[in-house]
Nucleic acid binder design. Structure first.
Length: 630
RNA sequence: GGGCCCGUAGCUCAGUAAGGAUUAGAGCGGCGGCCUUCGGAGCCGCAGGCCGCGGGUUCGAGUCCCGCCGGGCCCGCCA
């Protein structure tokens, strides 16, 4: 309908001598007090070209538009410099309500496109913290959104088990072979990893004094949390003759598939992953597949990628180490320039200003001189795997903004393997900071997703008091906690850094997950007490401003879903859900539904059901659990 | 040093993608009401803003362009 309106506007414009692209025309909701329902400021744009003042242009355009060609439209009126469209609200509402109630509003037909969303992908060396939580929740929400729009979505987790970090953990683990994990495995291994990592860093000869102090502080905290095990890992690595080369040989052994290394690494990584899966399941985050980095190496995908880059003529060696000659590639190939988002002439400009090295490092290393693969190398292999083995048309990598350069390098690698780099898209988000300090997994300093969920749940239990049976209270508290945490992490624009605050995450009032859940249960409550919604109703009975406003918001749902997908902004849906919940609460305070009688009651029940449908869909897309009672 | 991102009430954030019909909106915190016929995890009101600063483009700029200031990130044979 909006499209039909745009097309009519474009046709009218062309009749008066100006060609415009219908997609370029803005159509928005008309503010209160102005005529019509949808309006466009197009006349302002055209005024210059036509040589007439905007109101005259508006009148001219309005007179040329064929109202009959626009579904559900009754009238077109000029209003100042705007052209406004009046809808047949009865027909419009009847359609919106119908599709909102069935949950189909905004859902896309199958597109036949396969889309990979890689998200979470935390190295299995310490528990999930708020930062990884943001990734998991953004990624999971985005996967849900794309699925809703009709794409075949495969959500995937890259288990990074072959790099230096897992090797540090495995090495630390080897120092306390007999110890049995206590508590949740990812938390226990997190302590070992941090202890080992600190030991490695402490041995560096050029360690600056302030860094040493920081490490010592972290160690004190670790000892307090982990006791003997921490101490043993730390002191035995400090006492080793040459832990660096042992680490290297361990890593090489694993990448080559040596049985002893394999047993050690897999034991460690698999236990940590068990902990992750448990936490992610609590959050309602799911993956269709876990791809192990080591498998990609053993199955030859990584080697194959390197081979193709070599075949293309851009793989060079520095001893055993292998790297891509990026400058030559970017000079010679348009697709590699595109991988770095460089347009026509950008390269020349960078070269002229001597800034090429600042934007594009000359060498992109795939392999170390000891023959082991770097993360960057396996990532190129993985990207090829996603396109060829998984069959993705497009891949979204949900990865922190600090990996922006690496992601462009991988895109370049993909181009050199013969694929269009634009099929790999970096869904970037900024980091979560703690108030006083930065989070540092390597030092064991983080706020974990588990403790946030537990704390949120505890607070909800307090509010629930004795109101519910114990089992029911548990379930409700868990669902509310999940809603609170997910909302807190999904509701901020991914491009902004967020400072972690307990107040924000544990907020149960307006502008929160629980606020949305509450509005949803209220709507459900009305419908439940009514014992069903009459099949027949007349939307003409919905006459008040609040009702019109509420329905217009429901009607906006499809375009919000579309925007959140196109812009990679799941937060738009969180905002939408919160606004719709608030509008519903206001409506609830001022309009009695049950007992309003006859046709009015039937229409209001249908409206409530429509709100419940749209709100429920929005909640599903950002993973806020629907609750019937709370 | 260079590149990318961010800078809106005391605090946490919407609004910037496609500049428009507002008087720039929420929440938290503060103050005051609704002392609950559909569930009060709610609703209503008050106080609180040179939209970082300075230029420019435009009929119109929080939104676009340029410069500056402040914060974050990247520039590893780490991930």
């Amino acid at each position: 309908m909006r499209r039909a309106f745009s097309e009519q506007l474009a046709a009218a414009a062309s009749a008066s001598g100006v060609e415009v692209d219908p997609g370029w025309i803005r159509v928005e909701r008309v503010p209160r007090g102005k005529p019509g329902h949808l309006g466009s400021p197009l006349p302002f744009k055209l005024a210059g070209a036509v040589g007439a003042p905007p109101p005259a242009v508006a009148a001219d355009l309005a007179s040329r538009i064929e109202v009959d060609m626009i579904p559900m439209a009754v009238e077109v009126t000029p209003s100042g410099g705007f052209v406004n469209l009046t809808l047949d609200l009865r027909e419009f509402f009847s359609e919106v309500i119908g599709s909102a109630r069935s949950g189909e509003l905004g859902r896309g037909d199958p597109t036949g496109k396969t889309v990979v969303v890689e998200h979470t992908s935390v190295n299995p060396v310490h528990p999930l913290h708020v930062g990884s939580g943001r990734n998991a929740i953004l990624g999971d929400s985005y996967a849900r959104i794309l699925r809703f729009l009709g794409h075949e979505v495969s959500a995937r987790y890259l288990v990074n088990d072959s790099g230096r970090q897992p090797a540090v953990l495995a090495y630390g683990r080897s120092k306390v072979r007999r110890a049995r994990p206590r508590g949740k495995p990812d938390h226990w291994y997190g302590l070992i990893y941090a202890a080992a990592n600190i030991a490695f860093e402490m041995r560096r000869e050029d360690l600056p004094e302030d860094r040493r102090r920081e490490l010592e502080e972290a160690l004190v905290d670790l000892r307090r949390r982990g006791g003997e095990v921490v101490e043993e890992v730390y002191s035995s690595i400090l006492g080793d003759d040459d832990p660096e080369s042992e680490l290297t040989s361990l890593m090489r052994g694993y990448q080559e598939g040596r049985p002893d290394a394999k047993a050690l690494f897999r034991e460690v990584s698999e236990s940590v992953m068990e902990g992750f899966v448990e936490t992610l399941a609590r959050l309602g985050v799911s993956h269709d597949a876990y791809d192990w980095e080591s498998d990609l190496i053993w199955n030859g995908w990584v080697e194959e990628a390197a081979r193709r880059i070599g075949e293309a003529g851009y793989l060079e060696r520095d001893g055993e180490a292998a790297y891509v000659n990026m400058w030559r590639a970017i000079r010679e190939r348009e697709d590699v320039r595109r991988a770095f988002h460089l347009g026509e002439g950008d390269l020349e400009r960078l070269e002229r200003e001597g800034k090429l090295a600042d934007v594009v490092p000359a060498r992109f290393y795939l392999q170390r001189s000891d023959g082991t693969w770097l993360y960057t190398g396996t990532d190129v292999g993985y990207s090829v795997y996603k396109l060829e083995a998984v069959g993705a048309d497009v891949v979204y990598n949900v990865i922190g903004s600090e990996q922006r350069l690496e992601q462009m390098q991988v895109r370049a690698g993909l181009a050199l393997c013969g694929h269009d780099p634009d099929r790999l898209i970096h869904f970037s988000y900024e980091m979560v900071e703690l108030v006083g300090a930065k989070m540092a997994g390597r030092l064991g300093r983080y706020v974990t997703v588990d403790e946030i969920l537990d704390e949120a749940k505890k607070r909800v239990m307090e509010i629930l008091g004795g109101r519910k049976g114990e089992v029911e209270a548990e379930d409700i508290a868990e669902a509310v906690a999940v809603g609170a945490v997910r909302y807190a992490l999904v509701s901020v624009d991914p491009s902004k850094n967020v400072t972690f605050s307990w107040d924000r995450v544990l907020n149960l009032q307006a502008n929160s997950g629980p606020f949305i859940q509450y509005a949803y249960t209220r709507a459900g409550g009305i419908l439940r007490r009514a014992g069903g919604v009459p099949g027949d109703f007349d939307p003409g009975e919905l006459k008040s401003e609040a009702e019109e406003d509420l329905l217009m918001r429901v009607a906006e749902f499809p375009s919000v879903v579309r925007s959140s997908a196109d812009l990679m902004r799941p937060d738009l849906l969180a905002q939408y859900a919160s606004d719709l919940a608030a509008a519903f609460n206001r409506y609830y305070e001022t309009h009695r539904v049950l007992g309003s009688g006859g046709g009015v009651e039937a229409a209001r029940l249908a409206l409530v059901d429509a709100v419940r449908g749209a709100l429920g869909s929005a909640m599903d897309l950002i993973g806020i659990p629907r609750l019937e009672r709370m």
